[in-house]
Every structure is written in C-alpha cells, then in structure tokens.
Design a protein around this nucleic acid. Sequence first.
DNA 1: TGCGATAATCGTACGGTGTACGATCCTTAG
DNA 2: CTAAGGATCGTACACCGTACGATTATCGCA
Lengths: 226, 226
Amino acid sequence: MEADAGQGAGAPTPLSKERVLRQALALADSEGIDALSMRKLGQGLNAGAMSLYHHVGNKEELLDGMVDLVFAEIELPESGGDWQSEMRAWAVSARGVLARHPWAITLMPSRTTPGPANLRYHEAVTAALRKAGFSVQMATHANWLLDNYIYGAAVQAASLPFADAGELADMIDDVFLPQLPAEEYPYLNESATALMQSDYDPADEFTYGLSLILDALERDRLSAKS
Amino acid sequence: MEADAGQGAGAPTPLSKERVLRQALALADSEGIDALSMRKLGQGLNAGAMSLYHHVGNKEELLDGMVDLVFAEIELPESGGDWQSEMRAWAVSARGVLARHPWAITLMPSRTTPGPANLRYHEAVTAALRKAGFSVQMATHANWLLDNYIYGAAVQAASLPFADAGELADMIDDVFLPQLPAEEYPYLNESATALMQSDYDPADEFTYGLSLILDALERDRLSAKS
DNA sequence: TGCGATAATCGTACGGTGTACGATCCTTAG
DNA sequence: CTAAGGATCGTACACCGTACGATTATCGCA
C-alpha cells in the first residue's frame, strides 16, 4: 500500500527501457553478469520479473541495450587536430570503460547487431581518420585494427586474475612460478622471474602497443599520400 | 541391457575426462555453447548428467578444459628460422582454430587460470621470440600484443553477422545502408558504399594488421639491437 | 462526468538449468 | 567368496527465462 511512498508525494518513478537498462548495468557491475536475472532485476526496480518484458522484449535485447549503454560511455574523438592524439585519447577512454564493465567484453562476441551508440562511435572514429587524410580503404583498416586492439586488450585484462603491478608481483612467485618449472617452461620461467624483479606493470602494455599501432598507421598514411 | 552392445563384444568405452571434454567440444561446435548442458552432454555419452561429475568437478572446470583443448589445436611456432614467418604461421593457425570454435572466445574473458596447452603455447611463442633476438621485455611486449591481436580478431569475427565477402556485399545494401542515412552517418555511409563496390573482404584485414604489427616489432627489435 | 479502449503490471506455471545427496552397481584385492 | 572402493545414476531443490491470462491504472472522447 505504501511501499512505494518514498519522500513526500513522489510517484514511484515509472518503469522505462532506460531505467531498466541502467539498473541492469548497475547490477552486472556490482554482482557480475551471471547474477543478472530478470527476477533480481525486477526486485531492484520494485517490479515483478514479467513487468520488464513491456520494455525489453527478451533478455537478449536487454543485453544488447546494456552493451550499447557501455559504448555510449566512451568518449568520442574530436576531429581536425592531431589525429594520433585524438585516437589515443579515444582508445584510452574505451579501455577504461571496458575495464569498468568487464562483463561487456564477454557479451560482445554474441551481439551481432550494433546499437546506435556503437554506430555513433564508429562514425566519429571514421570521421577523425578521414579528416586526417586516410583514404576510405585505409580508414577501414585503421578502424578494424583499433577496434581489434581495444577488444583484445579487454579480453586479456578480463582474463588476468590480478589488477595492478603489485598484485602481479605477489602472484608471480606465489602461484605462477611454482607452476612453471624451469625444465618444462624455461622461457616462461625466465620471463616471470625477470618481470617480477623489474616491477613490470601490465597496464603499460596498452600504451606501448597503442603507440606502435598508431605509428605504423601514420607511416602507411604518409606513404600512401606521396 | 543391450543398449551399449555396439559392434561385436566392444565394451561401452568407459567415461574419462578426455572423452567428456571432447564430446563437450563437439557439442559446443555443433549446437552452440548455450546448448551445452550437463544432461545433454551425458546423453551423447550414454551416461547420466551426474556421472560427469566424477571427471570434471563442476561446469566451470569443464569449460576450462574445453578452452584448453582449443588452445591445444593451435600449431606451435617452430623457432630458429625467420621469426616473422614463424609468428605469421602461428597467428594464422590460431585465427583458424578460434574461427572453427567461435564459442571459445566468449569463454576466454572469464577463464582466469591458464591450462597446460595455454602454457605450452606461450612457452613456444616466447621461445621463438627470444631466439630471434628479442629481449625479455620486448618478447613480453610482443607476446602481449600478438595475443591481443588474435583475441581481438576473434571477437570481431564472432560479432560480425556475415561469413565472407559475398555475404557482406549483400548485407551492406540490404540491411546496413538503410540504417546509415547519409545525413546522420555521412562517413559510415561513404565507407559502406565504397566497400560494397570494391568487393571488400574482411578476411584480408587480418593479414594486413598482422603484417603491420610484425613489421613494427621488427623495427623495435632492430633499433634495440644497435 | 462516465465509459471504453489501451497499456502496464503481475501471479502462476512450464520446461529447462547446475548440482547436492544417497542408493546402487561394478570392479578388483585379499 | 567377500569386503571395499570407486563409478554410475535417480531424485530433488533452487533457480532460470518467459508464455499466458487476469488484474489494474491511465487516458481520449462523448
């Protein structure tokens, strides 16, 4: 009778696709994507599970919407300035977003139709590349390669069981090195030992690879120009 | 009584972890990873669902094993020759394997402990790189970057709703272009139109990006040597 | 003002899931 | 031949996505 009487005469805020998606995103962030069930989602919205189906169609569509919401969080590149810094800022933003929502990358391979935020994102990136002088073909290459890089980084980040350099150093000699006897894995053993001693930070890999790719693309751009 | 009397006096082949994993892989390949349930898996092995738990612990462990089986399919690089061709052959093999088992990449982000095949794979790649003259640090960079590239390509391939160049061309003007009005998405529209007319094959992107990365790594290797 | 239509909500139910538990069988060592 | 141990499996439980129908709330129009 008064379960929804929040403060004062406030209405209980009606359900809407946006509210459902936002709650789903929050739930996936806090409890993991496997814990996202229609019942639990409804609970968080003071609604029954079946009420949600008036706003999302089915769970697949819910997941599609969640992924697109994640894409919407990525800062789009400006265009017209130094294309490398534009792409770098955009890629760093994308990496941060995918790290904040680690479940998103696990959903990506099964979502085959891009949402509006995804289209806007690709439009903006393509625009920046074309304005920097890339041909349609080369812009396509660059687009594919950069997406590839960002997705791959998200997959690797999600599959690593540590978060920062300190944790990694701890894990290397607690759990990794014991599994890497020098006789069976001489090279991995060598690497692990060396990395532990040089406080290696896997987060640096992202910027290293990104620069490598951007430089290579720039070389291609210049050589195609002449 | 005679359900397992195959040909002659053949015993029904006892269950084993390997047999369970192989059947699971076959089932995921043919019906998709979502259709892989313990009951159905048992059925294919003439066993009850609960019998499987004497060989795999739980479903997570089953998935871990399946992913490692996939890694085992990847051809390892030789070492000692031209490192770029070695890495190229290996990467192409990895791409093929992940394309044959599209569900594997969706599992990857959630599997945090590498299996033995995964370790062997990284050992072989690291060996090839070190023997080619890469330092430990640079071999780590290269390892990370190449893994990144392969995983990213698998994610993109899995999320694209077409298989080859012909299908793409068909889809571009049947479904993509109508969704990309030139006013809202001028650049994507331009790209889609241009690509359709030049029978663009997304499979070529893989070799383009791979060469770009290998060349860039070679440059780094040489400049660090001097 | 009242009424019909339309949309939103929700209770219940069905067939599926992973797996805990205990009973059963089958193999093998002594 | 028997005792013991592991492998197998039937049943049960809690949970899932969602089809279906009943119920309620909202709004346009006479």
